[in-house]
């Protein structure tokens, strides 16, 4: 990896001892994670380990109670911020289950969102023609069916089209931090490649990606710098991309038992020492 500039020594995302509950259930039980610009992190774990809770809480989805800990974005706590404020700061979540928006056309949705972000970045408004040209290029690069632009957001889209639409939004909105919540689930191999290409095109020194997945498969196409294993609400093991292969071969069970010790061995930041 290229040496980091001083600015890059501060993580763009820092999760500190995060405890999160939904109703009576504690889902995250002291999660730690540091992500710097230029890095791709994969957070892997079995069902119910808290992966989706983690990405949703970073994006600010309502319905979760943070009982302890903090989430810092560019050194600033974002816990008190609404989802739109977080988005305008540069956080993007590709949803596991993208929502259908009846009567709102995809193009209108993307344009409204982009305008909100451009305004927050102090950029001027794009004329409709400029926007359309810009969108056309982005869609073309992703092999995105132009007809889907005229349709209502995700309405009647196939599973693959919905996920592709999420990555198109990533490409158009160009955030600093992309959280991908099981973007690979339910995709056939061709769709997976398209989605992975989109993510790889986004990847760069001024971007960070946290990719949450159950399976190692997508990591064949998007090579992570770090892999973390989340079990029962804590990161129990962190390593390089090799760890994903180990998980592929052995499953998650072998990491379950010594969860307590393993968590300690990776230290408070969740980064491998």
């Amino acid at each position: 990896m290229t040496p980091r500039s001083s600015n890059h020594n501060r993580p763009i995302l820092e999760v500190r001892d995060l405890h999160v509950s939904v109703g009576e259930n504690e889902i995250l039980e002291g999660m730690n994670l540091s992500v710097h610009l230029g890095e791709v992190h994969a957070v892997m774990g079995p069902n119910g380990s808290g992966k989706s809770t983690f990405t949703n809480v970073v994006a600010g989805r309502p319905g979760y109670t943070i009982t302890k800990g903090d989430i810092l974005f560019e050194g600033e706590s974002i816990l008190g911020m609404f989802p739109d404020e977080r988005a305008r700061k540069g956080i993007f979540l590709a949803l596991q289950y993208p929502v259908e928006l009846p009567g709102i056309r995809n193009r209108e949705f993307l344009r409204t969102a982009l305008e909100a972000l451009r305004e927050a970045r102090g950029e001027t408004k794009l004329a409709i023609r400029e926007f359309n040209k810009f969108l056309e290029e982005k869609a073309k690069a992703m092999d995105f069916d132009p007809d889907l632009m005229k349709r209502n957001v995700n309405e009647g889209f196939s599973g693959g089209e919905k996920k592709r639409n999420e990555i198109l939004q990533l490409s158009v909105l160009d955030p600093k931090l992309a959280l991908l919540d099981e973007t690979d689930s339910g995709l056939d191999i061709d769709a997976l490649k398209v989605v992975a290409n989109g993510v790889n095109a986004f990847r760069g020194q001024d971007k960070a990606i946290v990719l949450v997945t159950h399976y190692q498969r997508i990591l064949n196409f998007i090579k992570p710098d770090y892999v973390h294993v989340l079990i029962e609400g804590r990161i129990v093991r962190s390593g390089g991309s090799d760890l994903a292969h180990e998980l592929e071969a052995q499953g998650y069970e072998w990491l379950r038992e010594p969860a307590e010790e393993a968590a300690e061995s990776v230290g408070a930041t969740g980064r491998p020492s």
Partner: peptide, 17 residues
Amino acid sequence: FYLRSRGIDEQTASRLL
């Protein structure tokens, strides 16, 4: 939430919806 997660404020999101 979906609309807001894309940077659109709550009122605009509700109005769009």
